[in-house]
Design a protein around this nucleic acid. Structure first.
Lengths: 141, 141
DNA sequence: CATATCTGTAACAAGTTTAGTTACATTTTA
DNA sequence: TAAAATGTAACTAAACTTGTTACAGATATG
């Protein structure tokens, strides 16, 4: 249970919200579909709210809804909202600066990281929440 | 120190080996450049050997060298050798199958995962170990 | 052949991260 | 004012990565 599944959860949560556009959905209802604790959902919704993908309202009759229509939310935005944006980590401890490789490898890797991030973002930007929703509704048996 | 830096280490290790093509390098020497323990390096070399990127020899005067020339080793192969191949994780606990979203979201995410993996692999396949080595040598002040 | 040296690997400790949980303050409706 | 919901802090548990020690097995060399 130490693998980062926040992106998966975020897509799931947003899809649930998209299925009920216009309604305010309670974190408990979302938690039920995701099969987790409402607090976990609220934490995630906090990140999505910061990225201005959802809007929440406190108080009785409160809940959360999408901040935009599903066609205007790409999965790249979702990924950016919940991910640290690093497919692989750089060195934990700094390499030996007396070795030419140790001295320069980090710059190479950092550059590589940026290329990969761009590539991932491009792939994800080709998908919208509406697209996900359509697959879900279509697959419903 | 719980972020996966194996790919970074692997590129580092292989670059060191590439700088000394034909020689057998000891794990202790590599560990010095990477600034870690020789056992950590040997563990990593084991994975790289399984992927047939390096060859090791036990015993006195033993060590490790590249199994192929650096022009013929792409970073996509390196990534495949050390990574589980998943940019993001699927749900830890299975979603609620009574909800249409919970029932079908995993297939959507799995498909997405494959697209991203392909995209990352394609980006990395455009780089060879020789290319990395050239940058390193060039940057040497 | 004996010894020194190196890899391969198991076992364990420590630190980090994620998810789950409880508890409670705050907001808002009715 | 009471009920119901979010926001958030604090803690626990589990999993993963790295670092470390220890030792068996292989091999070159005197």
């Amino acid at each position: 249970m130490a693998a980062n599944s926040q992106f998966s959860m975020a897509v799931h949560v947003l899809t649930v919200l998209a299925r009920h556009e216009g309604e305010k959905i309670k974190s408990e209802k979302i938690a039920c579909s995701v099969n987790t604790n409402p607090v976990v959902i609220r934490r995630l919704l906090g990140q999505l709210a910061q990225a201005e993908l959802v809007e929440s309202q406190t108080g009785a009759a409160g809940g959360t809804q999408l901040a935009r229509s599903p066609e205007r939310i790409t999965l790249a935005e979702v990924y950016g909202a919940v991910s640290c944006g690093e497919v692989f980590a750089l060195h934990g401890k700094p390499p030996d600066k007396n070795c030419p490789v140790g001295r320069n490898i980090e710059a190479v890797l950092c550059n590589l990281q940026k290329q990969i991030d761009r590539s991932v973002a491009e792939t994800l930007s080709r998908h919208t929440l509406q697209g996900v929703l359509e697959v879900i509704e279509q697959e419903k048996p």
